[in-house]
Amino acid sequence: MSRLVSAVASRLVIIVPYVWLLFFFLVPFLIVFKISLSDLAISMPPYTPALDGLRDFFARLGEFDFENFKLLMCDLLGYIGVGGGLCDSGFAADFYKRPYLSVAYISSLKIAFVATILTLLVGYPIAYGMARAPQSLRTMLLMLVILPFWTSFLIRVYAWIGILKPEGLLNQFLFMLGLIDDPLIIMNTNTAVYIGIVYSYLPFMVLPLYATLEKMDYSLIEAAQDLGCPPLSAFWKITFPLSLPGVVAGCLLVFIPAVGEFVIPDLLGGSRTLMIGKTLWSEFFNNRDWPLASAVAIILLLILVVPIMFFQRAQARAQA
């Protein structure tokens, strides 16, 4: 009897995270997917339902409206400039002639990529220094890395406006040192977005890097040096390859949320900073085209699933 209870209990423990995923990931995803298949309508909510209930689902399987995905595809075709007999008429032609969604996707990926590399360049030395610090200092350093999380993300990004704006702290400081005569224009440029992303996502880079570097056996470096390898070369031949799982984990933890980032480009970036998160926002709330915005979100998800799967593979391999 009690064995039965414990068997059920252990099942339950496994079931809980699945139920969580079902309700807070899969169901919202399906709702968004459903919206992406419906038509725009001037109503509340601003779309006609694509289906109601399961019975409907089978009844109307044939008449789903893939219009929005077609628009997205025409947008992409227009962007790469290949022929589109499909995209000759109506809305599709607008997207085909003036593609802006693809531009935003590509620009997001580019900004996220550059920002990830920058975060790696800043984060690696920090993680390395932490891992080599005396044992007694490490906990405190770790706390310092996590400390910014105690303040609202939004407030921290706002604070950067005060630093980066033309009459902001940075310019005042450089001016005082006599390094510049005219203020640097950083605010409302891509540079400001990079700074914002590097700053905000640094802990996500540092923590996994620190975890792998701290685990590493320092006698390996000594062995390399003993065999005639100078310290810098020993870093590239031993330390770096062994920290690769941490590098991959850190980069994905930064890259994935950075692609869809909305707050940072909205607050720090200029009108010419194109990121898909911003586009998504304006489709949802300015144009109130929920179906199209949902389709954009679904495609974004698909784009990100690829690196996530890569991440999973790398993790599995690191554990094997």
Partner: peptide, 12 residues
């Protein structure tokens, strides 16, 4: 050259 107490072979 030294042979380490823990061997210190390069795992990768």
């Amino acid at each position: 050259n030294m042979m380490f107490q823990s061997y210190a072979l390069f795992p990768h």
